[in-house]
Structure formats: structure tokens, C-alpha cells
Amino acid sequence: MAKKTYRQAISEALFHEMRRDERVIVMGEDVAGGQGGTGQIDAYGGVLGVTKGLIGEFGPERVIDTPITESAIMGAAAGAATQGLRPVAELMFVDFLGVCFDQIYNQAAKFRYMFGGKAVTPLVIRTMIGGGLRAAAQHSQTLYSIFTHIPGLKVVVPSNAYDAKGLLIQAIRDDDPVIFCEHKLLYDTEADVPDEAYTIPFGEAEFTREGDDVTIVAFSRMVHLANQVADKLAKDGIEVEVVDPRTTSPLDEDSIIESVENTGRLVIVDEAPPRCSMAGDIAGLVAREAFGALKAPIEAVTCPHTPVPFSPALEDLYIPSAEKIEAAVRKVMEYKP
């Protein structure tokens, strides 16, 4: 199997599904780029090059460059989805959610329920999340917890190239609105990715490390840090189990509870502010469902309750680090009632 980047994996998923089903369209800002300019079409192929080449194969009716107009993009994609297309709309940075959220959470997410089960809205919103590019407060958030809060949306947070391809194909074939969150710092990471199309079901966590001492639940890029910590601590005889839920909605609650019932200790790693977060959500879940199994208080390694800072010196402090995760694991291991 060939090593491919997260970027290539996502691109392959789009090519596969657009070839397979002509109802699949891609739309967003600079998904090709160059329209109306004096130079070439497909100048960008997506701001980070993920959709490069699509317009050459599928043409401008299916690879639609839009103005910078997030409400219209999200709303048009939602409206088109109710009428038989299967749009993959791009919300370039998740931070731009603020100018278009109504079309997502009051419209697309609610059609099926409000209309008594009659609407089908097969919409995928691809969006970039996460810090680390020194992109400051309005281009660095994760915000997946906000989508997770909304009934009617499914939320996908792939941590590696293999998952990204399988989960994106699943998302495009899914009949519900799906928010597909791509971490910016993962685009160049590699994994073994089959050439053929495959799907990964939503709501099935992946155990990226197995162990009996501590459970770490981590999302997206944080899974890599959790794995590093698990590998390091294994040398000290601490067996860490790492659970990557892969989707926050639906959430594989059973796998998380099963792991904590085995280890009795839980560290949650969430690249987000701590309030009303996935960290809080999972801590609540385990406190309700696996309280008796806990040997130590639950630890959460999160960002502080601040906007994302610009200065590298501050952003490095802001994002959860392997050191902080290791410290949290040691803390729950050393806890004495």
C-alpha cells in the first residue's frame, strides 16, 4: 500500500466520488481559483491545494468557484442537497462559521426534523480547523464542539490520511449533513492509504494504542501527540490506551466507557477551550456511566479559556503539548485517594 498524505487522501476521496456519482459537486472560495483573473484557471485548487485538478476533470458546473460569500455557499449547498445534488461545500476556515452559521444550524441541520422526516439533505461541509500555523485568533480555532452540539449534524475529525479518505467517502455517501473537519497541520502527514475507494463508518472509535493503565481520548491532531506520549511512557512501564473517536457526532460512547472500565483512569486531550467542549462532554459521560471504575479524577488537557494568540511563544503555550499530556497521565497514575 502506498504512503499518501492527508491532503492526497482527501483529494482521492473527492475524485473517487465525483467519478462515481455525477450528483456530487464541489463548491467554495477558490476551490479552483483564477476565474475572472488574467492568469490560469485552477490557480489555487483550494487555498491549501486539496481540490487541485478537480475542475480540469469535472468542469466548472461541478467544481464551482464562488465569491467570498459563506452564507450563500452554505445555504445554496443546503438547498441544492434537498433537490437531489450531493454538494461538498468548502468553509475555508472553520472560523468563518460566524458569518454563515444560520444556514447550517437553523436550516440544513433542522430540515429533516422540522419537516416531519421528509427532507433528505446529503451535504458535506469540508472545513479547516486547528492552530499551529501562527494564524492567530480568527484562523486557528477547532470549533467542532459547536457543531457537535447541534442535533441533525454529523461531525467528523479525522486524525490521519487513512481515516480521512474513508471517512470523507462515507460523508459524501451519507444522507445527512456532515461537517468534515480537516486539521491544517495534518495535510502533510502520511499514512498507508489504499488506491481504491473504501468507507469507514461513523461512530466507531479507533484504538491507536492499547494499554491497561490509562485511557487517553484525543481528537484530530491531538491523537498524534497522545500516541507519542503512549510510546514514551511504555518505556517506563505505563501502558496507555489511546482512543480516537474519529467522529464527535455520533460519538462512540461504548468504546470510551469500555476502555475506562478497563483502565480506571482517563485523560482527555482536546485542542479547544475547556468550557462546553468535547473534553467536558466526555468527562461528563464517563462520570455518569463509568463512575465506579474510576481510580483517579478525570484529567483534561485543553487550551486555556482565551482566543488563540498569534505570537509563536504564546501559541505554543496555548495548544496542548506532549509534555502537558504526559504530566496529566503521570498525575492520574500517581493519584492516591
Partner: peptide, 25 residues
């Protein structure tokens, strides 16, 4: 009938999407 809509200004983008679907399909 793509729905009455509780949000003022809610439907115009949706109608554009319905038109896009009509065009492509």
C-alpha cells in the same frame, strides 16, 4: 415547497441552491 422559514432572510440562499440543482440536474 422548501419550507416556511422562521429566520428572516433564511430562504434566499436555499432557493439559489434549488436553482443550482435544477441547472445541474
Amino acid at each position: 415547497m422548501l419550507g416556511a422559514n422562521g429566520i428572516v432572510g433564511g430562504n434566499p440562499p436555499l432557493a439559489v441552491g434549488a436553482a443550482l440543482a435544477a441547472r445541474n440536474l
